[in-house]
């Protein structure tokens, strides 16, 4: 099976974020990491390839720094990478990002496209499904298991509150992958070495510009959310804080 994995670089989970001058985005001088569900999507693609053969291709969009996500993926075992490289890609909405990806892969023939179920930065949870619609492919979201069948694949969808559902579907298809579908591997030293010789195709903004339209939605303002609760901060040495907290639990929360 030939599988494309859409990956995104996002600010690290505990990175302190500051607003930039525009007030509509963050200052970009923070540490980045791969969007967590995308790491699981890559791992699943590698496992499918190990079982059924084929090829794993990874794609991302973003400035030069985003290439790190692709290098890590190549080191873990992806065969080649596509980087839509331009700072402007950071500001695209899900519709435009999907259009750019569709354009960048128009000469390829994939059986499956994986994305993480959502990104840790925007959290729109849309790009994968939008891409499926643009390609005219079926899709399934929040996937916890994938088995090849005679006519296509059978996937296990996670529903809410502990429910699941198996869905049979034809190929090609787009799947959005849930964290925890598998156990992530680490890149090996030899993998890191081999990654340097794997093909990485760069796509400029100009190459996909023709299919992009104006964004359909716009961030007017980004800000630190207003606290809705009166939070009481307990301070002091650990032993002291423990005492204070127990007093609160006894006298205010009344659970002791």
């Amino acid at each position: 099976m030939k599988i494309l994995v859409c990956m995104k670089q996002v600010p690290q989970k505990d990175a302190p974020l500051k607003l930039n001058e525009s007030g509509a985005w963050i200052r970009e001088d923070v540490s980045y990491e791969v969007n967590e569900p995308d790491a699981y999507a890559l791992e699943e693609a590698l496992r499918q390839k190990e079982k059924h053969g084929g090829e794993v291709v990874v794609i991302t969009s973003g400035p030069t720094r985003a290439g790190q996500v692709l290098r890590e993926a190549l080191a873990k075992g992806a065969d080649r990478a596509i980087h839509l490289e331009d700072n402007a890609f950071v500001g695209l909405d899900a519709f435009n990002t999907a259009r750019a990806f569709a354009e960048a892969i128009k000469d390829e023939k994939f059986d499956l496209i994986f994305t993480g179920l959502q990104s840790d930065d925007y959290g729109y949870a849309q790009t994968g499904v939008v891409l499926a619609e643009l390609l005219g492919w079926p899709h399934a979201t929040i996937i916890m298991q994938i088995e090849k069948t005679d006519g296509g694949i059978q996937v296990k969808r996670e529903l809410e509150a502990g429910y699941f559902q198996f869905v049979d579907m034809p190929l090609p298809a787009v799947l959005t992958i849930q964290s925890g579908i598998n156990k992530l591997r680490y890149a090996t030293l030899i993998g890191i070495k081999q990654a340097k010789n794997k093909p990485l195709r760069k796509v400029t903004l100009a190459e996909v510009q023709a299919v992009l339209g104006p964004n359909l939605q716009k961030i007017e303002k980004l800000y630190v959310p207003q606290k809705t609760k009166n939070t009481e901060f307990l301070q002091g040495p650990a032993a002291e804080v423990a005492k204070q907290l127990v007093e609160k639990l006894r006298n205010e929360v009344r659970v002791l």
Binding site: A242, K243, L249
Partner: peptide, 30 residues
């Protein structure tokens, strides 16, 4: 800056490994 503090009634900014052991003792005492 953890978002959990936005909705917390009582917040402790610190290392949980320092705070939890004495907290267990205090709870037992109480």
């Amino acid at each position: 800056e953890a978002p959990i503090f936005e909705i917390a009634d009582y917040a402790v900014v610190g290392n949980l490994f320092d705070i939890v052991p004495p907290l267990i003792e205090e709870v037992k005492k109480a």
